[in-house]
Structure formats: structure tokens, C-alpha cells
């Protein structure tokens, strides 16, 4: 099934929560409002026509150009995305979903943006969301065990944020 059809099925069910249409790209995607994500996820998995039972990947992506000289050419407003790559084993089709949130909740620096968890829909989302939290700094609300997964638990900051400051010291280990 192509993305246009998938989008019209979703639009019928969720209206404006799934954006006005698929975004054009090599791998086109559908944008989902954070508030509707949990329901959309369940629908995508359980609907007979879609059967997206396999979450291939979930990752965060930070859009920011910290260098003011290059910011004009950057071409994106600062924001954070969570990207979901889905596929259906039975129907062998693929889908990319995106949830777009501000870099900081309520624009208060240090307050991580919130996205509802899908770990109850696809089991693997549990670990992928922990990784996205650890490296990109996204709070997955409702996650049963949102701890850092790759970095130590007392690590500060989220390494894949574009404005991440590389630590100069960690427990007496010099960073430079």
C-alpha cells in the first residue's frame, strides 16, 4: 500500500492529527500530533488493512545549527523530531512516521520535550525510547522504565543534541 492510501485511511480516522498529507521526500512521511500518537500507533498495528506489526527503528533527531554564521543557510526551524520506521511483515509495506516537538518543553531550556510512549504497542520501543531519551533528550511519557541505556546513569546532557557541550571531566577522567 502506498503512503497516499495509508494517509487517507489515517485521515479518515484521526482527522487533522495526522497532518494535511504525506510529506514529499525519498521516503515520504506522515506527521502525527504528539497528543494522538498513542492511538495512531495502536490503530496502525491493529488495522486489518495496515498491520504495521514491526517497529524497525525509532530515533530522535535534533534540528539546530548552533553556529550563527551558518544558521541562515540551515533551512529548518529549531525543533526535535522522533522518527518511527514501521513495516508490516505480512503485507510487506513500509511507513515512516514523525512526531515534531519543540527542542525544550515550553521553551524553557533544560526542560525535555514530551512524547507519549509506544512501548505498549511495540515491545522494542522500550529500548529504542530509552536510547532516544539518553542521546537526544526526549521524555517518553508513560514509559515503564525510562533510564539511560548507553551512557552511565549519572551522565549529564544528551550527546546527540546539536548544542551539546562535550564534558571536560567525568569522575576524574579528563575529556581532553
Amino acid at each position: 500500500m502506498d503512503i497516499q492510501e495509508i494517509h487517507s485511511i489515517l485521515a479518515e480516522e484521526f482527522g487533522d492529527d495526522v497532518g494535511s498529507g504525506p510529506h514529499e521526500a525519498k521516503d515520504p512521511w506522515i506527521e502525527v500530533a504528539p497528543s494522538a500518537l498513542a492511538q495512531v500507533a495502536v490503530f496502525l498495528r491493529d488495522d486489518e488493512r495496515l498491520q504495521f506489526n514491526h517497529l524497525n527503528d525509532l530515533c530522535g533527531c535534533d534540528y539546530l545549527e548552533p553556529d550563527p554564521k551558518k544558521a541562515a543557510k540551515f533551512g529548518h526551524d529549531p525543533h526535535v523530531e522522533v522518527v518511527y520506521q514501521l513495516s508490516s511483515i505480512e503485507l510487506n509495506h513500509r511507513l515512516k512516521l514523525k512526531v515534531v516537538v519543540p527542542r525544550w518543553k515550553d521553551d524553557v531550556e533544560g526542560q525535555l520535550p514530551e512524547v507519549p510512549t509506544v512501548s505498549g504497542v511495540w515491545g522494542i520501543a522500550d529500548w529504542h525510547e530509552r536510547e532516544a531519551y539518553d542521546l537526544v533528550g526526549i521524555l517518553f511519557t508513560g514509559h515503564p522504565n525510562l533510564r539511560r541505556i548507553l551512557c552511565p546513569e549519572d551522565w549529564e546532557g544528551h550527546a546527540l543534541r546539536k548544542d551539546y557541550d562535550f564534558p571536560l571531566e567525568y569522575h576524574g577522567i579528563r575529556g581532553k
Binding site: 527503528d57 530515533c59 533527531c61 534540528y63 543557510k73 533551512g75 529548518h76
Partner: peptide, 19 residues
């Protein structure tokens, strides 16, 4: 093994993700 690449007009990707 999955690779997710976001290009942004430069030689370096904006995001290089290895699943």
C-alpha cells in the same frame, strides 16, 4: 541493519543513525 541519513546541503549528514 538500518541506516537513517538526513542530508542538509552539506557533505556531512545532519543525522547519521545506525539501527
Amino acid at each position: 541493519m538500518g541506516f537513517y541519513l538526513v542530508g542538509n546541503g552539506t557533505a556531512e549528514p545532519l543525522r547519521a543513525r545506525a539501527k
